[in-house]
């Protein structure tokens, strides 16, 4: 098992209810899992906890058997540099860098930069003609493809995506999802995807639903 999430509880300061209340689930290598839920149900919180960007109040997050729920900033950073990658709805590209530099940045930070693999990603994602452009010079769909290329260039064990198609139109959305699933299966990574869309969730191997702070398998 790549990741085992056990009994996670999280309450934010100033709030009088737990966002997560004993959420538990597993994630296997090569698997794609979608998490759906209402607005404010805590989907992004789960994703942030899996990425060690946040810490739970209680519970465990076992990554290859090691608990990463309470890592120091340095240790969590090291984990994200090489093994876990994120794709955000807002793309969050670095505006100072051009497309080529954005794509290679994460892999180079984690010392996992492979020019041949990056070239493959660039070709598959149709970014070859955009490499010298800056984020503000390309469209939203193109920016999201750059963000995906950036995360996959690391060859992460786990790819986390938070509403990766939320800002895209239907066609672009379908294309981005197809590419993500395709490239995840090629690289052998696991994909954990947060989405509002049942259609997108349906295309993943498993569909989880978050409600009342707990994660359950969604009805087929």
């Amino acid at each position: 098992m790549l990741m085992s999430i056990k009994d996670l509880t999280r309450r934010y300061a100033g709030q009088n209810r737990d966002v997560l209340r004993g959420a538990s689930f597993d994630l296997a290598r090569g698997e794609s899992v979608a998490l759906t839920g209402d607005s404010g149900s805590g989907k992004s919180t789960v994703l942030h906890l899996l990425a060690a960007l946040d810490r739970p109040d209680r519970g465990q997050i076992l990554f290859e058997g090691t608990d990463i729920s309470n890592l120091s900033d340095a240790a969590a950073s090291e984990l994200r540099r090489g093994r876990i990658a994120l794709v955000f709805q807002q793309y969050n590209l670095v505006p100072a860098l051009n497309v080529a530099e954005n794509i290679s940045l994460h892999a180079r930070l984690g010392r996992r930069f492979d020019p041949a693999w990056t070239e493959t990603l660039v070709r598959h994602l149709g970014l070859s003609g955009l490499l010298t452009r800056y984020p503000e010079q390309i469209s939203g769909g193109q920016q999201q493809r750059v963000a995906i290329a950036r995360s996959l260039a690391v060859r992460p064990d786990l790819l986390l995506a938070d509403e990766p198609t939320g800002n895209l139109d239907e066609t672009a959305s379908a294309e981005v999802l197809r590419l993500m699933l395709d490239l995840v299966s090629r690289s052998g990574s696991a994909l954990f995807l947060v989405t509002h869309s049942p259609q997108i969730a349906a295309r993943c191997d498993r569909h989880l639903h978050l409600s009342g702070g707990q994660v359950r398998s969604a009805a087929p």
Binding site: D73, S77, E78, L79, G82, F88, N92, L105, L109
Partner: peptide
Amino acid sequence: LPQLAPVWAMGVSRAR
């Protein structure tokens, strides 16, 4: 913050 957060998310610690 919007410029630093993605870099932090990519594994560059706050101290760094």
